[in-house]
């Protein structure tokens, strides 16, 4: 059964790649599939920017605590280690990992996570980012989970970097930069929607994804239209979920 779903997922992802996709939507879809296919509690995809700072491109929940946990890894954490070494990094119990990651381990434990795993997004010899998986139980990531995780990270890399266009390093730099920029455009639009409708940014993001998908629009283009004021966002307000307090 799991194999069937896995096959379908990869077919679906391959279709997305062909169809001309939105990079942020694609990465979010990939993180969503990770959550369905793998027995994990949270997942996030991070890309390195020109400063070698890790930046969140997609996350299984847009809640501020989870995002903070990814961001924190610019100081220490499995994602940073994974990004710097290009090797997968795991820890079976974060409660005893404070020596290794003095900032990250206590924060992750505080958020209820026990097992952590990070797999590299690798293009030939270059590491461009990492996929981060969390579980609330200790010793909770089986080897096949990490194998599938690596396969997902590879798909993400292929999706980000269109190989056939990759004759030169500058194309890679441009594509990574464009991806990071798309994410910023979406954050700006989330803020506008959140403020206009009194909802939190996570709910605003869900609205944007649903709307863009229903209207066959690319997420980033839709976000840009929101910012330009060329899209009337009141159109989809009736289906707006209520603000989630405290998130």
């Amino acid at each position: 059964m799991a194999d069937d779903r896995l096959t379908r997922t990869f077919v679906e992802l391959a279709d997305t790649l062909v169809a001309g996709f939105d990079v942020v939507e694609f990465l979010h879809m990939l993180v969503d599939r990770c959550m369905e296919l793998l027995d994990v509690s949270a997942a996030g995809l991070l890309l390195g920017d020109s400063h070698d700072q890790l930046r969140v491109m997609a996350s299984s929940a847009e809640n501020i605590h989870l995002l903070e946990l990814f961001q924190l890894q610019n100081h220490d954490g499995p994602c940073l280690d994974c990004y710097l070494t290009g090797e997968p990094i795991s820890h079976p119990d974060l409660r005893v990992a404070a020596d290794r990651w003095p900032m990250f381990a206590p924060a992750a434990t505080e958020s209820g996570f026990r097992t952590v795993h990070a797999v590299p997004m690798r293009l030939r010899s270059q590491v461009i980012g990492a996929l981060n998986l969390f579980h609330t139980e200790p010793n909770a990531l089986a080897p096949e989970v990490t194998q599938i995780g690596q396969a997902m990270a590879d798909v993400a890399t292929i999706g980000l970097i269109q190989e056939r266009a990759l004759h030169h390093q500058h194309v890679l730099v441009d594509q990574l930069q464009t991806a990071l920029d798309s994410r910023v455009i979406i954050e700006q639009a989330k803020g506008i929607i959140a403020e206009r409708h009194g909802i939190d940014p996570g709910a605003a993001f869900t609205l944007m994804r649903v709307y863009a998908r229903n209207h066959g629009q690319r997420l980033t283009e839709f976000a840009a239209a929101i910012i330009d004021g060329t899209t009337a966002i009141t159109k989809f307000l009736p289906s707006a979920p209520a603000a989630t307090p405290g998130v």
Binding site: Q53, E187, G191, E195
Partner: peptide
């Protein structure tokens, strides 16, 4: 990179909110 850092998502979310405010 320290206090001028604008790589964090809340910076851009806040920008969108402020533009409406």
């Amino acid at each position: 990179v320290d206090w001028l850092s604008d790589s964090r998502p809340e910076v851009h979310q806040a920008t969108g909110m402020i533009s409406v405010q």
